[in-house]
Write a protein that binds this DNA or RNA. Structure first.
Lengths: 339, 339
DNA sequence: CTGAAAGCGCTTACAG
DNA sequence: CTGAAAGCGCTTACAG
């Protein structure tokens, strides 16, 4: 590798390293002459300052870390996109890490971000408060939670209030005559998994729907577990007539499994999914979803993180969720059906 | 922020900084006693070595940069996932950047990766060979192209041979009786956009199909442009009876637009999309696709990059593509139709 | 406005 | 096996 340092630039420009540094960092205490010579030299040599050396002295890296549990989940891909764009506006580069829904990989990335001395971290965490997330808090590294939180770890967060959306979905399905709703839950090691599960149980209870434990299957927020859950639920003696799925990757798995069983969503079994993902609206029939705003979430997280970096203590934000009814759950249950 | 340095660890362990460094980096020239004391001290202080300082001396960061044009494109999300997992196996952390299909953002991330002195870069590039990609080559930073290439920039690459898949798709549609195939092309500023376009024109010519220029619309590989293209194509006096779409985000846009026009894919208009994405198989009817292996591509790119980092000069690899026929293009064209 | 010098947190020959 | 010292590429008071 060819390495050009500030010394090379200084030599070519015929000024000291100190002056070169000042010009390059926009320090006004420089002469017009020095400025033009340094810029010319830097351009000629295609000089790229070593960010590591720079950060070592100035303790600012102008980079933030974003750790998502699963980049292949369209919700988090969207989130990565909005965070990145928002961060860019404020001069931060985003280092994106993918925990792959695994605690060990999350810890590994977190250690990496700490070691790289990013200016701040936005994380959609999984697991309990053990491991590297402790180090982040202990070292007082600016950090905010996004989408998910960890109980007992006191960081500002921007999350979705799943309760309203789930309640609307349960009410909606109950109004259509469903009394046995199957729930494909997220992992209970995540705050969203736990909250949505609790909301479902509460809403179903309030409506007097069946709380048969067999109607609830726990997945891991990834597609395969959605398929498995459907096979389990639809094989019950008294199968559910409607399904509520806690995220879109599990919904994709669930819908695939339903089709492979020769059944049709909307008519044979109603289905509502969390996450308003493009393709869910394109399916036939289009899928009812519980929507929340990815764009707001990303933007707010970046703003909150900037506040923390600047020494502030922002309030946590809770964003609303709401039901969008589409044909996958629009038909009242057939009173003539045996179920 | 709380900052623990190697000095603190050395002081607590009662040894020199040099010895501490040796223990921490696994240098065998250390006594058992020193090792246990240093490890204990490091654990007690929750010491995380400063990666910047370390890299400044050792010129290895154990990080690679991955630059994708669009994280929201499921193909690149999958690619990011496989690259990341493959890199992790070899001890590299992946810094993922998203160019958002924009040259300026690509340059910005590239500069950032150069400044961070990553050990190597994997990039699915866009644009011509101007800008920061020149700096990467000029500085001889280990780098490989993935999925896309840039003409005139001599880097090893792993790409898809789109030609076979596209030819299969055109042959297949021709065999069903289609003579006017609409082609929704990718941007001609990308190698994949250009190659697939050229393949289509060649294959259509070979089959004696219509080469009416109005049948070809150029999109930007993102969803919105797929919708626009469909509205243009289906408004023609002689609209196409089949559509071939150069990537999955444009396909999602196209399919949505077709539905909004009250038409059905498979019956009213046949459709084949590049990229074998989960949800395309779930649509009704399921969508025929041209598949290529994301998993192979990611793994090979990481292997190639490691070879370059170790001073080697790997051969470029071209992966096959092939047609998967599903119901969106399974019905022979109705000979009674006026078109 | 400019330069010499110290120092950021590490690693690594060099002696011993 | 261990420590003192130099140095990686920068930035930043300190003098002038």
């Amino acid at each position: 590798m060819v390495t050009i340092t500030i010394k090379d630039v200084a030599a070519l420009a015929g000024v000291s390293v100190a002056t070169t540094s000042r010009v390059l960092s926009g320090n006004p205490a420089t002469s017009a002459d020095a400025r033009s010579r340094v810029h010319a030299a830097a351009a000629e040599l295609d000089y790229h300052p070593n960010a590591q050396a720079r950060a070592l002295r100035s303790t600012r890296t102008h980079a933030i870390g974003l750790l998502v549990p699963d980049v292949r989940n369209p919700f988090f891909a969207d989130l990565a996109h909005t965070v990145e764009q928002a961060a860019l506006v404020h001069g931060f580069a985003t280092l994106l890490g993918n925990a792959n829904e695994r605690k060990d990989q999350q810890d590994r990335y977190l250690d990496n971000l700490i070691a790289r001395r990013v200016d701040g971290i936005i994380v959609a965490p999984l697991g309990d408060g053990s491991g590297s997330i402790r180090s982040v808090v202990g070292r007082e590294i600016p950090a905010v939670f996004i989408d998910r939180t960890i109980e007992g770890i006191d960081l500002p967060s921007v999350t979705t209030d799943s309760d309203t959306g789930i309640r609307e979905a349960v009410d909606h399905l109950a109004a259509l005559g469903h009394t046995r709703i199957g729930y494909i839950a997220g992992p209970q090691s995540t705050s969203t998994g736990r909250e949505r599960y609790a909301s479902f149980v509460r809403a179903a209870g309030d409506r007097g729907l069946s709380l048969d434990p067999a109607l609830i299957v726990f997945g891991d927020f990834q597609a395969e577990s959605g398929s498995t859950a459907v096979r389990t639920l639809l094989a019950l003696n008294e199968p559910p007539t409607a399904l509520l799925v806690a995220d879109s990757p599990m919904a994709i798995g669930a819908i695939g499994a339903i089709q492979r069983l020769g059944l049709r969503i909307g008519t044979d079994v109603a289905l509502v999914s969390f996450d308003d993902i493009d393709w869910l609206a394109l399916l036939d029939p289009p899928v009812s979803v519980i929507a929340h705003s990815v764009a707001d979430m990303g933007r707010i997280a970046v703003d909150m993180l900037r506040t923390v970096i600047d020494g502030g203590a922002p309030e946590s934000v809770r964003l609303p969720s709401r039901l969008i009814v589409r044909a996958s759950s629009a038909t009242p249950i057939d009173p003539g059906r045996s179920r």
